[in-house]
Amino acid sequence: MAETKDDSGPALPPAIESAWGLRGRPPRGPRPGLSVPAIVDAAVRVADADGLPAVSMSRVAKELGAATMALYRHVASKDELLTLMVDAGYGPSPGPASPDDDWRARLTRWAWAEHDVLRQRPWLLHVPITGPPITPQQLDWMEDGLRCLDGTTLPEGEKMSILLLITGYVRNEATLTNQIAEGSRAAGVEPGEMMPAYRRMVGRLIDPVRFPALLRVLNAGVLDQDDDPDDEFTFGLDRILDGIEALIARRAA
């Protein structure tokens, strides 16, 4: 019995009904061409261009050449709009990997796909997380992530925990990279000059008795140039995958 659909329980939130196309059409009005997908696409364009703070119902209405109140016939609130924007912003999941790839190659591909989305659309990181994924494309991402672990000996609960671990790492790395870039721009620091400037400041402040380990880092030239964010991401992801590999081996034994 593979059927898992459950129609019991509380009613679905309006945003989820809209995401899954379960809401009826609103009555025809002066702008019959206005639709939920058109509104969401316009909101994503605004966020892509000017960031999440620029997204408002009035700004999206202006983007569409419509009255603000006309949007509320399709999207009940800004919170509902944000939910739909996240689903659209992530876009389609990376899809099935090559059948020749092992679980590690598949998870690496999946993590890099999310990494690239968050680098391209950092406004996604500013939308509050209010619960587990429930919209269509987000569940597609989850499905593909779980399939990466097909063929391992891990129980299903640990597969879910691995996805949570990896996506948490991806979001944290993307948030850190984005905030550092924003801070550098605000301070007028040229790209590639942040770490050298930091090294000079730290070198003026520390003494070798109190900070011997940090001094060794400075003397080794670790802070002489900015790191490539992709290199840092690769290093961290590989360490996580090493741990998962050890877990799989332990479960198999």
Rank of each mutant, 00 (worst) to 15 (best):
A2E: 10
A2M: 03
T4H: 04
S8P: 01
G9D: 10
P10R: 00
A11I: 04
L12H: 02
I16R: 02
E17C: 11
E17L: 13
L22N: 01
R23L: 13
P27E: 10
R28C: 04
G29P: 03
G29R: 13
G33S: 12
S35G: 06
V36P: 09
P37K: 09
A38H: 03
I39T: 07
A54G: 05
A61G: 06
A61R: 10
A61Y: 11
K62F: 11
K62D: 15
E63V: 11
L64E: 07
A66E: 11
A66H: 06
T68H: 06
A70V: 03
A70S: 15
V75C: 13
D79G: 02
E80N: 03
L84N: 08
L84S: 08
M85P: 12
M85Q: 08
G89C: 08
S93D: 14
S93R: 10
P96V: 08
D101Y: 02
D102P: 00
D102F: 00
W103A: 13
R106H: 01
R109W: 06
W112C: 02
W112M: 03
A113V: 05
L118F: 07
Q120N: 09
W123K: 02
H126T: 01
I129H: 05
P133F: 06
P133Q: 06
Q137H: 11
Q137R: 15
W141P: 02
W141T: 01
E143N: 13
E143L: 14
G145A: 04
L146C: 00
L149P: 05
T152K: 00
T153C: 07
G157I: 09
E158K: 02
K159G: 09
M160D: 01
I162P: 02
L164N: 07
L164E: 07
L165V: 01
G168R: 05
R171T: 03
E173P: 01
A174Q: 09
T177K: 00
N178G: 07
Q179V: 14
E182R: 13
G183T: 07
R185N: 03
A187T: 07
E190F: 09
M195H: 02
P196Q: 11
A197R: 15
A197T: 12
R199L: 04
R199E: 13
R200V: 12
R200W: 07
L205M: 14
L205H: 08
L205Q: 13
I206R: 02
I206H: 02
I206D: 00
A213C: 05
L218D: 10
G221D: 11
L223I: 00
D226P: 08
P229A: 00
D230N: 10
F235R: 14
F235L: 15
L241K: 03
G243D: 12
A249V: 04
R251T: 13
A252Q: 13
